[in-house]
Write a protein that binds this DNA or RNA. Structure first.
Lengths: 214, 214
DNA sequence: GGGGACATCCCCTAAAACGGGGATAGTTAC
DNA sequence: GTAACTATCCCCGTTTTAGGGGATGTCCCC
């Protein structure tokens, strides 16, 4: 930050009323300075890249380039730029797309002014401000992928080891060498793995195994 | 909640000093009632299941059954129970494991008393309280999986089609039949796919392809 | 109008995997 | 104590893949 403690912010929001409202809220904070407010990603992008604000507040629905796409473009060039989505959308799909594209925080538009200011301060010190509603969706997502059935869980540790090496592209001989067992044993494992996972081929086993993670 | 507005809480924490400290903090809040504090998952689990508190504060490192395992057990029986991890661990591995097992929030032990109380209130209304440090790790995780290079993106539509069928366990002949092309053509595609994805074998191609998602 | 991806097909030989047996020995687990 | 699961190894014949060529026609781009 140029002036220590002062957070420079740029706002991207197509709705004029809301945009001016946000600018006003920012003006009430002595430690926050608004460098500009734009109605579209296209108009904001060059300014963001040249002025390098500390924080960008970004709407998702924008005319032309979407906010998510814009985040992606910004992060490509300036991965350290802090970006908070401020939007009406609360569907998981958009939330995850925004986060994947690199957004650092996600607020709903209905959030109170103090939360907006707190979010700017939080995100500029490395935090990840989220409306609690949004945060809980993110958490549920983890729970979901954590409890989705994993047939490869039923495999013995040794079998899993074989499956992993198989997925890495090694042939039986090479797997045998690495595990200090014969290729025939590897073959036996693969047979058992396919049986246990109820798949026809090792290819399908690998595919399933790799889908069931993260 | 039995008494409207009153949040019943159970604490699981093996360190006696910290456990008593947490109980004291909870006692200062008029809207929070501590139903019990236990030093192990084994001793807490039956109480949690029978007393059905609104919120559980859970340590990760516990003697015997880990806090993560305990969360898993609780959620299996009472998926709506709200559980906040309160722990010293800040490594992504443990954070994600806890969230996957169903934890609803994640605080670091160093958090101030007000944050602890705020978290209980937040989580009991469906929020997902997280120390900002933790939240940003979660957000970074999304960004990571969002930008991890997808080499299978470079494949032509037809090639992707073949790759998907391959991952479903079909052999070349069957894939050919489904796509109305000869097995030889399928073979050519597979060769090209392996080249484009810089992998040694179709197995590795399938593994990579399936990992690149979510 | 030639260079590049794409989609399609073909050949040959060798290597790898599959199917379907069988076998031993250790360790839990009821 | 025996049944069940694990980890390990072996054989045979058949099918499928891999490796490494070559070929044709369609687009599209510059």
């Amino acid at each position: 930050m140029a002036t220590p403690g002062i957070k420079n912010v740029i706002v991207v929001e197509d709705d004029r009323g809301l945009r001016e409202q946000i600018v006003e809220i920012l003006a009430t904070a002595p430690d926050i300075k608004c460098l500009g407010a734009f109605p579209s990603a296209e108009s904001a992008l060059p300014q963001i890249l040249s002025k390098k604000p500390d924080v960008v507040l970004m709407d998702i629905k924008l005319p032309g380039m979407s906010g998510i796409q814009c985040v992606f473009e910004i992060k490509k060039v300036l991965p350290a730029m802090q970006i908070v989505m401020v939007t009406v959308y609360e569907d998981s799909e958009r939330i995850f797309r925004a986060l994947k594209s690199g957004a650092n925080g996600y607020l709903v538009k209905s959030c109170p002014p103090e939360q907006l200011l707190a979010a700017i301060r939080d995100v500029s010190t490395g935090g990840a401000p989220m409306s609690s509603h949004i945060a809980s969706k993110v958490v549920r997502h983890f729970h979901f992928i954590g409890t989705s059935p994993k047939e490869s869980e039923n495999l013995s540790p040794r079998e899993r080891e074989v499956l992993d090496l198989l997925a890495s592209g090694f042939i039986y001989k090479e797997i045998g060498d690495q595990l200090k067992i014969s290729a025939e044993t590897v073959r036996t494992y693969v047979k058992n793995i396919c049986q246990k996972m109820h798949v026809r081929s090792r290819l399908e086993a690998v595919a399933r195994h790799k889908s069931e993670f993260h």
